[in-house]
Each structure stands twice: as C-alpha cells, then as structure tokens.
Write a protein that binds this DNA or RNA. Structure first.
Length: 127
RNA sequence: GGAGUCAGCCAGACAGUCGCCGCUCGCUUGCGAGGGGAGGAAAGUCCGGGCUCCAUAGGGUAGGGUGCCAGAUAACGUCUGGGCGGCGAAAGCCGACGGCAAGUGCAGCAGAGAGGAGACCGCCUUAGGCUUCGGCCUUCGGUAAGGGUGAAAGGGUGCGGUAAGAGCGCACCGCAACACUGGUAACAGUUGUUGGCGAGGUAAACCCCACCUGGAGCAAGACCAAAUAGGAUUCCGUUCGGCGUGACCCGCGCUGGAAUCGGGUAGGUUGCUUGACUGUACGAGUGAUUGUGCAGCUAGAUGAAUGACUGUCCACGACAGAACCCGGCUUACCGGCUGACUCCCCCA
RNA sequence: CGGGCAUUAGCGCAGUCUGGUAGCGCAUCGUCAUGGGGUGGCGAGGGUCACAGGUUCAAAUCCUGUAUGCCCGA
C-alpha cells in the first residue's frame, strides 16, 4: 500500500450493498450514543473501511446531511491510523443536524475512541 | 433631500495546509503537472417540450385541460402588446375575464312573495253596518309609491298623471338591438335610428361552445456476461386462441397454448452532457422574441465529489446542495449595487 | 428520482362526490343505582374541520398554494 497518509480513496470505504450487509449480518462491536450508532466487524484487509447511513428521515435537509457527512469523512481520514482494522458503519439519529461543526467533531472523537477501546478488548479475548 | 414604482445584477473576499470527483498531457499502472468542479431558486413537482420504448401514434368514444383579442415560442396554464373591469394622487399594479336568450339543477333560515313573483302592514275604492260626524268594523276589488324580510325583491331621479298608484306618459341618466365610423381583432364612440326596458344570481353546479390533448417514464431504454435455457410428461389447438400496445372499441405488431416435474439468478457498461447553450457586434420588431457574423466550452457523481482547518479584512455572510436535459410557474431568502420613472419639499 | 394517498373532539373514524345542521364509538365530567368498586341507566362539556389565499349570499365540502405524515416503483 502506498496510500497518501491522510487520503480518502475508495479502498477505505464501504462501496456497495453487500459490504454493508456483511457488517449487519455479524456485528462484532457496537458503540451507541444519543446522536449516532456505530456498528463494526473485524476485517482482514489490513486497514479499516467506513460507510455511513445518514437517512433523509433522520436528517431532513440535504445541506445538513452533506455537512455531517463531510465532517465525518474529514475526521475519519485524519484519524484512521488510530482505528482498528474493521468495517465500520456510522448511522445518524435524529437531532444530529442541530449540532455545530465542533460539536460533531468532539462527538465523533468520543465515539471512535469508544469503538477502538471495545475492539481492543475483543481481540485480546479472541487471542 | 424624502417617499415610492419598475427592470436587472451580486450572494463574503484573499492566502496557506490537508483532502474528494471528472478532463487533458507526461511517464507509466500509480504518481506528477495543468485546468475545471452546485443555484437563483439546484427546492415544490404545478404546467409545457426534448429524449426513449410501445406502430411511423392511426380512427372513434370516454376522460382531462385551457378560456377577452392579437402576437411570441419547440411548446405551455408562460411571456409580450392591446381591450375591458378594479385599486392608487402618480409612476404603476391586480384580474380562472366565453356562454345562465339551448336544457337541467341549486338558493338553508327569514319573508306575503326567491323568478314572466308577490297584497303581511299600508294606500285607494265598491257594497253594507255603526258613529261622539273625527272616523271605525266587515266586505267585492284596485295598487308595487312607502314599511318590513333577506346576500339578492324584476332600471334611477324629477315632473305630469291618477280614486290611489304604476314606464302609464314625458325629460335627463342608465340599458338593449340594429346601422354607421375607427380598429386585424377584442372592443370603442359628445354618431344615428328603434325599443318603455320583457328571460335576476350561481357554470372554481351539471352542462353548452371554441381550441388543445395517445400512454408511460432515465428505476425510460440499449449493450456485454450470465440467465429466462436446453429438457420430460399430459391435455387442448393449428382461419381459433394467447401475449403486447395498461380507460374502452377498432386497428396494428408478435406468437401455438396450458398444467406438472426438474434446474436456476450476479452484476457491469452505457444513456450522461455541445445545448431551443453562453458571450459579443450589427440588423428586424412598440415588445415578448428573432436573423447573421465572430469567439468560447461552462459539474457529470453512482454509498454518490464540490469540503475542513488556520490567519487577515469587512458591509459579519440569508434561503439553501445538481442526479437525463431544457422553458416557465410557485414557494423560501440576511443584505448590497446599478439604471429608468412618479410624487412631495428646499435652493438657484 | 418518479408515481400516488391522507390531515375533522384526548384516541379511532363518518360527513367532502351532491356547499347551508359537524356527527358516531371509546375516553372525560356530573348524576342515579351499590355498603364501596366494576358493569349499567340518564345527562353534560369538549372542534379556528392542518395552514394561507380565492370563488360564492354562504366553504370541513369547490379551486390554488404551503406544511406535515404515509404508501408504491431497483
């Protein structure tokens, strides 16, 4: 792999419905909170992959949806080296569009840290 | 200087760092360089058109739409100009603005009467009775001026007329029909003649008239790979029947049909941006719009790009995010700029 | 992205086509019956008919726009 250190190419995303379905079929780690729900499953690709489900039902206006997506993406590509090798789905709940950019970032930090902590616990048990 | 009307434009700027999606070029199979990367509404999906498939969209019926006139346009429910009506002091703005004299329906309650209407009170009068001679009661009638009901009561004002009244007659105003004049037309008129004026409201009620209208939608459709296959059995049929064209009938196109058994599914590419395009010059037109020349290429994703952070400045940044593409309409919106016009005040 | 439907009392629904009175069941309140409660009988209250314009004498109903919720088409 000769990826740019903070890039966001397609290898680092979940791309089609099958990718999403495999995660839903067997969730290894969950990280719920008031505004989001993270689901993750261990992969053996040597890097994490991210996908998001921000539905129109939970975030009504397209401008707000795009804003949350972009901040999430940006946070992910800057911090992916701290994440375990998993396929991660981040789902939005109602009310996320009320948060400011800084609030979204701190919320993401908390959630990803929670995920990494639980994942490390999982791998030690498996080993 | 103030108040207002109309038309058009802008939608924070600059620099740095880290990223995302196309395009071109270079080397080469992932990097480098260059250049591009949301809107005026991208929205709502309320109309119209292109495009695609169904027949090249054909005939009829039903259904739907539009609704003063003329024009613009690919087309429209849009736009422009004009007419009529309304609002405003004006610039200007607003209007589903055909027909109820083809037919049918509707109008609760109130009211005498709700449509060639109607005597409840009233007014006048015939006959009779009573009388304190003022009139009162009963009654045959006349009467739409007044009261009262209602959203709405079958021209208005005045004079004459009359028992009291009434377009009953006359004058003026209004109205209708015809003619004339102007205008392509809608329509208009210090025009003329005729008519006493007789059939009011509602068509965003059914409906009538005129014009328009085939259906579906890029999840349309096309291509590649795979697959519906290839099979087996039974029954029916071979001018029949079935399928497709999704309102119905005709027509047209394709084709043997049905049941059971067994077998089996996976996506990718394209459509996808050069267009009723943009800018500019000259010309046609009151204008919407349009002709010709020159120049330009201005998002094209497919879990879906156009962003985040830092710094500086200011008027402290609204509504809001393309998904086949255009033309409109409607709705949302912090502010700012330009031009034209109207009215008022002051100065010269 | 495209196509369609709904919104009426606290809740579930009629009424809208064909304009004039907004109604039904449950729930709420009062009262009768019971020693008390439930069940039952009788009675009452509660509605800007989602919002804003328009047509009409008159709009829940007809027309136009807006908002919200739901369904269908890979």
């Amino acid at each position: 792999m000769s990826l740019k250190p903070f890039g966001y190419p397609k290898e680092l995303r979940l791309l089609n419905a099958r990718d999403y379905q495999t995660v839903f079929n067997k969730v290894d780690v969950k990280a719920p909170s008031e505004h989001t729900l993270l689901l993750a499953r261990v992969n053996n690709l040597g890097h994490p992959r991210l996908g998001f489900i921000f539905s129109k039902k939970n975030i009504r206006f397209a401008v707000q949806r795009n804003r949350i997506k972009r901040i999430t993406k940006d946070y992910y590509r800057l911090n992916r080296h701290t994440l375990p090798n998993m396929d991660i789905i981040i789902m939005a709940r109602k009310g996320v569009d009320q948060l400011s950019n800084d609030e979204v970032r701190s919320m993401l930090k908390k959630q990803f840290n929670k995920l990494a902590k639980r994942a490390s616990k999982l791998t030690t048990i498996n080993n």
